[in-house]
Write a protein that binds this DNA or RNA. Structure first.
Lengths: 337, 337
DNA sequence: CCACGTCATGCAAGCGGTTACATCTGCCCC
DNA sequence: GGGGCAGATGTAACCGCTTGCATGACGTGG
């Protein structure tokens, strides 16, 4: 310990106020249990000394850190930052602080970060998606850290809050097919490392099957989660001999990238090709034409996630929560030409 | 302390491995000081027990938390999330974890969050902008917590890393004026609570003065930092009898909102009005036409901020860092009609 | 063969709080 | 007057980890 020698401690305060450390501690944590006169004397000492409690000591003695952790793929994607913002706001109202880390969509980094946040005293963890290997699962359950999965909903024992990505994408697919499209493509994040992407692919295939189309005819174009990557994926699709008439995208970011690329290729949307997004971020409203997409209640999800995690930390049981999505028809979907 | 009785502690590990707690601690923190054979036995015990160190105890004994805090107005705005992402990545490489909070652009919340993060053991703080009242300044200096201001650069004693918002906006203004515009408007965040916005206004006035225009003729339209708010501000400007020929915006988000509104009002950009942004976010490339804006090196800033803060925490002196911005001419700026 | 250095490990004293329990005081009532 | 009780405060035992110092084993050179 090489702490600053002039940082005052509880016992410094106690000495100045002429009381015991117990009394000082009570003044700070349960003022009503101390005589007003004594309390004033103590608070005066606190003030003159500029005392503030030592975090480590308090955490050790009290057995809790009032801190929760969240690990998201990246803060750069608005799909996460919206929800995390709400999550943090709600946490704050419960007196909890947020420890945050990002995994860059890499499972090994996620694992490292899980360990790091737990080691930093996170009392509960918010994670994205269900995909996770057994060693880290074991670690988590051995440590008894409550984990809430967000941005995804799945029937099962693991507590989660999110959307039924599969059903939502099936809805979107149904809508596209209802417009007469038969040759569909999907620009998606890599389903190997992103289980939300995986179930969205499945959802789209469900819709095709439902409509009597061959799910195997779906062209899946996996790519990174960036604007430019979406654009490049679109170009690859467009260069195919069996060019699709509708390009669905796993996220708005990919769709926006596709749209920009279409524009620069001189392809008219939705006249020559339909494009759809997923998430209904701000950017869905600023593209031209504005993006037909699936609205996800990010804000609500973030808040609910915080509430659920608070209950889980308190040891109360929680039920997973599935939030509704809503198709938002804007300008990028039409019938095939 | 009401900790879970089956969470293993150092001495549990020590017992299982048949060594002292000191040896276990060394295995974890200075492996080279322990015989390989012993070390393996200990690590084996760590694994089977699922041991992870108790944060409070470690922080108390070691006198540090390896945690830094950042308080940003909101994570929803990509202008912050980009930089924070990079900040966190760099922090991780130094073995530090990020505690994050948001102020919603409200000084009193920022103050509360500063206290909260310091109480949670933040060893250093990243804050946005210089505006801050004295009580909280005193608190910070009394506690000796290093503070780095980011997203803004200003000559002065306070360490900071960012852009010269004033000069950058002056550049943008110069460019607009050079195209022949004389009636300028600026859609800006509220300069009362946002010092970056304030100096950007000043920068624009500098450019006007430089060009022989009356800086008082600048129409400033203050508003919230959202897409819709930008749109409404644009409409208010457009309804004025002395309609501006160029509408500069304090951020890309506002500019995108203005652009969308212009489109819905049937106003052609840049033929009837020029619009410029500030920040060069992804969304600047997806508007139609794409946005002329000021590129800010968010990523670089986030990384540098982390490096500087690490040095500050180590007690080393740091120099403020001014990063260069670059005008990006795209499609929303032209001469007046 | 012994003095001495090196290296691995153990012992135990903190680190700065919280809190169960003990103590003390003053008061009420029988 | 003494038993009992309530309320304010003090005492000290933790909480789980790090680390300076002590210990003991072993090897080396004189």
């Amino acid at each position: 310990m090489r702490r600053d020698p002039d940082t005052p401690t509880l016992s410094d305060v106690a000495e100045v106020a002429g009381v015991s450390t117990a009394t000082v501690s009570r003044c700070l944590n349960a003022p009503e249990r101390v005589l007003e006169q004594t309390r004033n004397r103590v608070l005066e000492a606190v003030r003159t000394l500029g005392y503030a409690p030592n975090f480590g000591a308090r955490a050790l003695a009290e057995g809790r850190t009032r801190t929760v952790g969240a690990i998201i793929p990246t803060m750069e994607n608005a799909i996460f930052s919206r929800g995390i913002q709400a999550f943090q706001e709600e946490l704050r109202e419960h007196g909890l602080t947020l420890l945050i880390a990002s995994s860059s969509y890499r499972p090994e980094i996620e694992e490292e970060q899980i360990r790091a946040l737990v080691a930093r005293g996170a009392e509960g963890l918010l994670l994205i998606g269900f995909q996770r290997n057994d060693t880290i699962r074991d670690f988590l359950s051995a440590r008894g850290v409550p984990v809430l999965v967000a941005w995804a909903w799945q029937d099962g024992p693991a507590p989660c809050v999110g959307f039924d990505n599969r059903a939502a994408m099936a809805d979107m697919g149904g809508e596209v097919i209802a417009r007469g499209h038969r040759r569909l493509a999907l620009i998606s994040a890599d389903p190997q490392v992103n289980d939300r992407a995986l179930v969205r692919i499945e959802g789209l295939r469900d819709a095709m099957r439902e409509a009597g189309l061959d799910p195997a005819s779906l062209i899946v174009e996996p790519t990174d989660a960036s604007l430019d990557a979406g654009g490049l994926a679109f170009r690859r699709l467009w260069e195919r001999p069996d060019r699709p008439t509708a390009v669905l995208c796993g996220t708005d970011v990919l769709a926006a990238g596709a749209l920009v690329m279409a524009r620069s290729l001189g392809v008219k949307v939705p006249d020559q090709v339909s494009i759809t997004g997923f998430a209904d971020l701000d950017l869905a409203r600023i593209t031209e034409p504005p993006l037909t997409t699936m609205h996800l209640p990010h804000h609500r999800m973030g808040r609910e996630a915080a509430r659920m995690l608070v209950r889980m930390i308190a040891g109360e049981p929680v039920d997973s929560l599935r939030l509704d999505c809503a198709l938002v028809l804007r300008g990028t979907l039409a019938g095939p030409c």
